[in-house]
């Protein structure tokens, strides 16, 4: 069963595209120069399922965007059926191993600095680790979807323009600036399993899914709480014909103070009709 996945990502207002620390899977958005980050692809299922997710590298911590990408890549390789958080933690532990390899490669086995920071600062900044949220879904061909999440990135499941699930957060008051996140340092992940949420539900052919990182997710929930439907607007973005439109929309929300000035990402998933 093929899926149509559209992704849009905008860095915070005073940042370059290359400083955007959000990540998307499949990798449809890439920070190249200062071009608008938008992409669309048809994704066919592999071994009966399709994996889609967003991750948000925390502001504090060096190389957080890279860590967000590594986290999603490791989760995308999950082979087992997810039932509980214990099924997810091995993949996040694998991400920590990948992070070590990434640092070795980037530093050419420790012979070059990892960053442009002064030496006294790099050691400690890197040792503190990078942190990220993750909100991912495996869509199975049998009509089931399974979600795993840590932190405050969210997915919204719509059927006939009705929100049937907002997950893992369902109220705008649940957002804050210090969520528990997955760390690149194993020592910071000791309570990780307790903070991973999983869920199972069913999708139908006409359903829409929207993934969003925290600033946009919070705005979506506020709109929903105020009976102001955001869905028509979110469905209108076209990553190919008008890749700039999402950026302009986010900027207008920032201008009016409706969302925080933060890296902001939207992923829209639909099922391609007239197939199967």
């Amino acid at each position: 069963m093929p899926f149509l996945v559209s992704a849009f990502s905008v860095p915070k207002r005073d940042a370059k595209a290359s400083e955007n620390q959000d990540a998307v899977w499949p990798r449809l958005v890439r920070a190249k120069n200062d071009e608008p980050c938008a992409g669309r692809a048809e994704v066919a299922s592999k071994q009966g399922r399709v994996f889609v997710g967003v991750a948000d590298g925390a502001t504090e911590g060096v190389l957080a965007g890279e860590w967000a990408n590594i986290t999603l890549k490791s989760l995308s390789k999950t082979a087992v059926d997810i039932h509980t958080s214990d099924d997810v933690t091995p993949q996040l532990n694998e991400a920590v191993q990948t992070w070590e390899r990434f640092k070795r490669l980037r530093s050419v086995n420790g012979t070059k600095p990892l960053t442009a920071l002064p030496a006294w600062l790099e050691d400690e900044a890197v040792a503190r680790g990078a942190f990220a949220t993750a909100c991912v879904v495996w869509f199975s061909d049998n009509g089931e979807w399974i979600g795993a999440a840590i932190g405050d990135s969210c997915v919204f499941h719509l059927r006939q323009d009705e929100l049937i699930e907002a997950w893992p957060l369902s109220n705008s008051s649940e957002f804050n600036n210090s969520p528990y996140l997955v760390s690149s340092e194993a020592a910071c992940n000791v309570d990780l399993a307790k903070h991973i949420k999983t869920c199972r539900n069913h999708w139908e052919r006409e359903d829409h899914f929207y993934f969003a990182t925290d600033a946009l997710a919070c705005w979506i929930l506020k709109q929903h709480e105020n009976q102001a439907s955001p869905w028509t607007k979110l469905a209108s973005f076209d990553a190919i014909a008008a890749p700039d439109e999402f950026s302009a929309f986010v900027e207008s929300l920032r201008e009016s103070g409706e969302i925080r000035n933060d890296d902001t990402t939207l992923v829209h998933v639909t099922f391609i009709p007239n197939t199967q």
Partner: peptide
């Protein structure tokens, strides 16, 4: 001082 997200498990 609020300069963005700070993980609660950051040591």
């Amino acid at each position: 001082l609020d300069i963005g997200t700070r993980a609660s498990n950051l040591r």
